[in-house]
């Protein structure tokens, strides 16, 4: 039985969604150029992931009870696509301030490994409803932490002399590998803190 704190620690540190699990690479690499947009994306992803986890859990239970597990992937992706659509319309209309900050990221999040990934992981691990929420929150915060740190790294890279072949994507990926390596240092944390 994974405690909630263990789930958070796992998602953020020991099994960081982006740096260990490679989920959400596209937005991670694409939107991490500037810190403020990176943080915006990170928060948007966290929000969508948590909402998606909340909405998909009852559907998952329903599918399992009806023996229709094989419809999982299709149902999940449709939920996510609809959720993002509805969110965009809703935020655009009623919370204009939020839209101007995060709105542009929403379409980027639909066909994103991260959101579908966390929903499928929640289903595969058969988490309870509260566990699913915490797991999604942890994953999203892990994404946020990773993209935030990475945006700072990238701003430093911009001031460095990079060989022509490496400019752009390649040096970004190599920087990501070093950040991923640094996160490996967190491996023993759950055990060391005595968490379940």
């Amino acid at each position: 039985m994974k405690t909630y704190i263990a789930l958070l620690v796992m998602g953020i540190l020991t099994q960081n969604f982006v740096l260990s699990r490679f989920l959400g690479i596209c937005p991670f690499l694409g939107v991490s150029r500037q810190t403020n947009t990176a943080v915006g994306m990170g928060l948007a992803v966290t929000g969508v992931m948590t909402l998606a986890a909340i909405i998909s859990h009852p559907f998952n239970v329903l599918l399992n009870n009806m023996g229709l597990e094989y419809l999982q992937t299709t149902v999940f992706i449709l939920i996510i696509a609809s959720l993002v659509q509805i969110l965009e319309v809703f935020i655009k209309r009623y919370i204009k301030a939020l839209y101007s900050a995060f709105g542009i990221y929403l379409p980027l999040i639909t066909t994103n490994c991260a959101v579908l990934g966390i929903v499928i992981i929640n289903a595969q691990e058969a988490y309870t409803f509260p566990q699913s929420i915490v797991s999604a929150l942890g994953a999203g915060l892990g994404f946020l932490l990773a993209i935030f740190m990475f945006s700072i790294v990238r701003s430093k890279i911009n001031e460095a002399h990079v060989p022509p072949s490496f400019r752009g994507m390649p040096i970004t990926l190599i920087a990501a590998s070093i950040v991923s390596l640094s996160f490996m240092g967190f491996t023993g944390i759950a055990q060391g803190l005595g968490l379940a």
Binding site: F166, P170, I171, L173, I174, S177, L181
Partner: peptide
């Protein structure tokens, strides 16, 4: 995972 990023990065540099 770190190695994955690295190999991908180097391959991309090669492609570039």
């Amino acid at each position: 995972p770190a190695g994955g990023f690295m190999v991908f990065g180097f391959l991309m540099a090669l492609v570039n």
